[in-house]
Write a protein that binds this DNA or RNA. Structure first.
Lengths: 168, 168
DNA sequence: CTCCTATGTTGACAGTGTCAAGCTGTGGTG
DNA sequence: CACCACAGCTTGACACTGTCAACATAGGAG
C-alpha cells in the first residue's frame, strides 16, 4: 500500500516489495499466489478505503438527496487523491471479467443501499439508478484523476448532473 | 493494432511486435523511441477510430438533442467493442499527466463542437457541458467494458441521463 | 562515385515473474 | 518428552523483457 501511494500498480514488482520488506525475492510467493494475487489484495484494501470515504460522506449529509451528491463528491475525491489505488480497483487484469468480482461487492452494496432510500428511489428510472449514478461519478473521477479537467469542474458537473437525475 | 485487438496494451511487448513483423528484436527502436512511443501511436490511432465512430453517429442524427444521445451511445459502444483500444487511449502511463495531451485534442474538439450547437448549449450549465457529458459516457463505457453491467443497461442509463442534462 | 540516412542486425546487460529444491523454527500430536 | 508437519524463508535457475551499443547494408542526394 505504501508503494501504491507513490507509483501505479503496473510499476510495482514482487521483487521490489520483497526488497522493501527486507526479505528474499521469493518470500512474497508464500503470501500471494501470483503477482495478480498481490494486486487483488491491494485492490481489496483500496476498495475498502473508497467505500469508507463514501460512507462517511453519506452519513454526514442532512438528507437523502444531498447524501447522493456528497457520496459522489467523495468518490471523485478519492479517485483524485489516490489515483493508483483507484486504478488498481478497476484494473481489468486484476478484476477478472467473467466472475461477479468479489472486490466490487462492498461498493455496489453501498450504492444500492443509498439509492434504495424510498424518497429518492421513487424519482429514479430503473435504468439510471445505480448504473447512471455510478457511471457518472466514475467517469468524472477517472478523467479528473488523469488530469483532463480540474477537480472543481468535476465536482460542479457531478453535483449538477446528480441533481437533475434525482426526483425533480 | 492487430495485437491490440487480442490483448491489453500492457501485455504487448516490443519483442512480440518485432516477431509478428518477422524482424529482429531491436528493429522497432528505429520506428518508436520507446515502448511508450509505440503505445502512444496505438493510442493515437485508437482515438481516431473512436472519434470517427462518434462523428458518424452524430451526423446521422436528425436533431442536435438526439445527436448528443447517439454520440454518447457510440462512445460507449466503442469502449465495449474495442476495450483494449479504449484502455490504451486513457492509459495514465501513456497519456502524460502534465502536458495538454496531444492525443485527446480530436475528441475534445468534437465534443465542444457538438455541444456548442446553439439549441443545446443554451440548456447546459457551463460546468456540466463537456465535462458532464464526457464524464457520464466515459464512466458508463469504462464500467460496461469491464463487465460491471450490461451494454443495454449502460445505453439506457446514458440516454436517460443525457436527456435530463439537455434543455428540458 | 561518394557519402549520409534509414533501416536492420547481433550481442549484451539488468530487471522481472515464476518454478524447484532445500532450510528452519514453532506448534500440536502421539 | 520426542516427533513431525508445516508456514515462512532461502538460494538458484530459467525464459522473457526493455534498452543500449556496435556493426551492417542499401538506396538516394550531392
Amino acid at each position: 500500500m505504501q508503494l501504491l501511494a507513490e507509483k501505479p500498480a503496473g510499476e510495482i514488482s514482487l521483487r521490489e516489495v520483497a526488497r522493501a520488506a527486507d526479505v528474499s525475492h521469493n518470500a512474497p510467493y508464500h503470501h500471494f499466489s501470483d503477482r495478480r494475487g498481490l494486486l487483488k489484495v491491494l485492490a481489496g484494501r483500496s476498495m475498502a478505503d473508497l467505500v469508507t470515504a463514501v460512507r462517511v460522506a453519506i452519513e454526514q449529509a442532512p438528507d437523502p438527496a444531498s447524501a447522493v451528491i456528497a457520496g459522489g463528491a467523495a468518490y471523485i475525491r478519492y479517485a483524485v487523491e489516490h489515483p493508483h489505488g483507484f486504478d488498481v480497483i478497476y484494473d481489468p487484469t486484476v478484476c477478472i471479467p467473467g466472475e461477479p468480482s468479489e472486490t466490487m461487492a462492498p461498493l455496489i452494496d453501498e450504492l444500492e443501499q443509498l439509492l434504495s432510500e424510498p424518497s429518492i428511489a421513487a424519482g429514479l428510472e430503473s435504468a439510471s439508478g445505480v448504473t447512471g449514478v455510478w457511471g457518472l461519478v466514475h467517469g468524472l473521477g477517472t478523467l479528473c484523476a488523469a488530469g483532463h479537467f480540474s477537480l472543481d469542474d468535476a465536482l460542479a458537473a457531478s453535483a449538477e448532473a446528480l441533481a437533475r437525475m434525482l426526483p425533480r
